Simulated assay, not measured.
Amino acid sequence: MALAREKRLPPLHLSLKVPSRAAVQEPEAFRHPNPPPAAVPQSASTPLARSSQFRLADFDKLAVLGRGNGGTVYKVRHRETCALYALKVLHQGDAAAEADILSRTASPFVVRCHSVLPATSGDVALLLELADGGSLDSVRSRCGAFPEAALAEVAAQALSGLAYLHARRIVHLDIKPANLLATTTGGVKVADFGIAKVLSRAGDHCTSYMGTAAYMSPERFDPEEHGGHYDPCAADVWSLGVTVLELLMGRYPLLPAGQQPNWAALMCAICFGELPALPDDAASAKLQDFLAVCLQKDYRKRASVAELLAHPFVAGRDVTTSRCALRRLVAGEA
C-alpha cells in the first residue's frame, strides 16, 4: 500500500532538519512586546494595501536565512530606516496563495507580512517581520532539549496562533519546529504558509496530501480509511504534539535515534507505532497528558485547540517563569 501511495502523491519533505477583518483580543500575557518598525504604520490593512510603501531596490540582502522547494528567505535591511526584515522570494505560482493567507492575518502569534513585492523573472517577494531568534528547529539544534517551562510557553503561543488561524478557517498543514519562529523576547510565531488552506466554511474537511511526512497525522497518511478526507484542524494539533515532543526529547521522537525517516518507516511509526515512553523525571504528569491528548491516533478523540489552551500544562503555567525560560533558551543562556 505504501508503494502505491508513494507513486501518486506529490513529493514530500522527509528531512527532519527539515483588516478589513477585526483583530482578535489577545490575552494580556501575550501582547506583542515590540511595536512594528517606524517605517510601517501600525494598522490592520492588508499586505497588498501596504505594497506601495516599499520597493525591492530599497533593501540590502544581509544573509540567507533558509532555502526550500518554494524559494529562499533572506535577512534584509531597509536602506533608509535600517530596519531589519525577512524577505521570502517565491516562485509566482507558489506566492499567490501564501500572500492571500497572510493578508488575512494580524496576530502577534503569526508572522506579519508588511508588503508583497514583484521580484525578477516573475517571482514574488514577501516582506516579513524578522523573528530574531530563528526557528525552534535551529534553537533545538543549537541548545538541545527544551526545559519544560519553555515548552509550556511554546505550546501556549503556538496554540494561540492556531486558534487565531482556525477561527478564520485557515489551516496550516505544516506545523513543525522549522515553521515556528522565536524572538529574543520570548515570543513564538507561526510561519511558512506555503501549503496552508482557507476552508470554504468552518468544519470543512481537507484532501491535500502535501506537507512534511514526519509531522503528518495518521489520517493524512491513510485518508481512505476516513472517507478520502480528514479534519485539517485536528491534523494541525497532531503536528503540534509531535513538535512539542521533539523539542522535549531533543530529536525527532517517533523513530529510533538514527533511523532513516523514509516513507515506509514513518507510516508504520505514525499509524501503528506507540508513543515513546518518557521517564517520570523527563516530563511532568501534566506534560505527558498534554502530549497524549494531542497525539491520539483517532482524530475524533484528539483534543481541540480550545481544549489544549485550557489544559493545565498551558493554562496552569507561570507565564513569567515560562516566558523567561524560553527567552533564556533562545538567547543561549539556558
Score class of each variant (00 low, 15 high):
Glu225Gln: 13
Arg317Cys: 02
Val244Ile: 15
Leu102Ala: 00
Phe54Pro: 00
Leu248Phe: 03
Leu48Pro: 01
Ala97Ile: 06
Arg300Gly: 07
Ala334Pro: 00
Glu129Ala: 03
Pro276Phe: 09
Ala150Pro: 05
Tyr209Phe: 12
His229Thr: 13
Ala191Leu: 01
Ala292Trp: 11
Leu62Arg: 13
Asp298Cys: 10
Ala163Asn: 08
Ser138Lys: 08
Ala257Arg: 15
Ile170Tyr: 00
Ala86Asn: 04
Leu87Phe: 11
Ala234Gly: 05
Leu181Gln: 05
Asp60Gly: 03
Lys286Arg: 08
Val124Gln: 04
Ala213Pro: 08
Gly122Lys: 09
Cys268Gln: 15
Ser115Pro: 00
Ala315Glu: 14
Leu295Met: 15
Val124Glu: 07
Asp94Phe: 06
Tyr209Thr: 10
Glu80Lys: 13
Gly187Glu: 13
Ala285Ser: 13
Val190Tyr: 11
Leu14Gln: 05
Ala106Met: 02
Ala155Cys: 07
Ala39Glu: 15
Val124Ala: 09
Leu326Glu: 00
Cys233Ile: 05
Ser135Asn: 03
Ala310Glu: 15
Glu225Asn: 12
Pro232Ile: 00
Gly133Val: 08
Gln42Met: 08
Lys176Ala: 10
Val330Gln: 01
Ile170Ser: 00
Leu128Met: 10
Glu80Val: 14
Arg55Asp: 08
Val319Pro: 02
Glu333Arg: 12
Ala196Pro: 12
Leu65His: 01
Met216Phe: 13
Ser208Ala: 15
Pro223Phe: 00
Leu62Tyr: 06
Val64Asp: 04
Ala167Lys: 08
Ser103Tyr: 03
Ala178Asn: 09
Tyr74Ala: 10
Val293Arg: 13
Glu28Lys: 07
Pro41His: 07
Leu14Glu: 06
Val18Asp: 13
Gly186Cys: 06
Ala149Asp: 15
Lys176Glu: 00
Phe313Ser: 06
Leu12Asp: 01
Ala4Thr: 09
Tyr164Ser: 04
Ala264Asp: 07
Val111Leu: 05
Asp289Glu: 07
Glu225Met: 13
Ala125Ile: 07
Leu255Arg: 00
Gly273Pro: 10
Ile175Met: 14
Ala125Pro: 08
Gly250Leu: 06
Leu245Ser: 06
Pro261His: 06
Lys88Tyr: 11
Cys113Thr: 04
Pro177Cys: 10
Lys75Phe: 08
Ala167Asn: 02
Ile101Gly: 00
Asn34Ala: 13
Pro256Ala: 05
Asp123Asn: 14
